[in-house]
């Protein structure tokens, strides 16, 4: 019973969603949109579980004076301060997302720069990963290196300044071999996803139910 009911709910939900893809008429047509609204509501409440987990884990670390407790304290303080400025913004301006709200100040001058900093690290990681990937250890790696150099040169103005071969060649590499491989992977992945969905709907795949 503990497994049968979830499996039945999964099967019926999946079945009606598939039907709604082919039948636009009511009551099927808007089914997906309605279920997405339900999902958003459940996700909203589930967020409380996430915050609870986060709070407990870091509070425990502070109380037990474990290593890294100061980081945990900074995290909890940030959490509480962000929540507080959100409430202040709501009380003062009617919405925490008002441009004069302190919440937006925290968002604009705290969160956005932090996100940008993390994203900016990507440039250095790309350089170090490329360095390893492009070493000409064998024929395949050499092909990769040559293609990469052509694509890189073809996509920046200096490439066209050296020779018109680079923009033309990079376009061919991106439009023909690269796209063919990508589409092959995409077709395989799409079929894999459908196959997995089918296994879940039919109750063959049950590991996610624990």
């Amino acid at each position: 019973m503990k497994r049968t009911v979830p499996l039945l709910i999964t099967f019926l939900t999946g079945f009606f969603l598939i039907v709604s893809f082919f039948v636009p008429h009511e009551p099927f047509g808007q089914l997906e949109q309605r279920l997405l609204v339900w999902f958003a509501i459940v996700s909203g409440f589930a967020m409380l579980l996430g915050v609870d987990s986060l709070f407990r884990a870091h509070l425990k670390r502070i109380i037990r004076a474990r290593e890294g407790r100061w980081h945990s304290l900074a995290l909890l303080l940030s959490l509480v301060v962000t929540l507080a400025v959100g409430i202040i913004g709501f009380a003062k301006f009617g919405s925490p997302f008002h441009m004069q709200s302190p919440f937006m100040f925290v968002y604009t001058y705290g969160i956005i720069p932090l996100q940008a900093t993390m994203f900016a690290l990507l440039a250095f990681y790309i350089a170090s990963a490329s360095y390893r990937a492009f070493r000409a250890r064998n024929t395949v790696a050499t092909l990769l290196l040559v293609s990469a150099v052509i694509v890189m040169l073809g996509r920046v103005p200096i490439g066209a300044a050296i020779s018109q071969f680079f923009p033309v060649a990079q376009e061919w590499i991106m439009d023909v071999p690269q796209l063919a491989a990508k589409r092959g992977i995409q077709i395989g992945a799409a079929l894999g996803a459908v196959s997995m969905s089918l296994r879940i709907l039919l109750g063959i795949e049950r590991s996610y139910l624990s």
């Binding site: 990963a129 490329s130 390893r132 990937a133 990508k182 992977i185 995409q186 395989g188 992945a189 079929l191 894999g192 996803a193 196959s195 997995m196």
Partner: peptide, 23 residues
Amino acid sequence: KETSQLPFFVAACDYTLIGEELF
């Protein structure tokens, strides 16, 4: 299954499950 991220994993990881292999 994200084709745009696969090259990064191939470059930086020891083993990569490509697309359908994940499923």
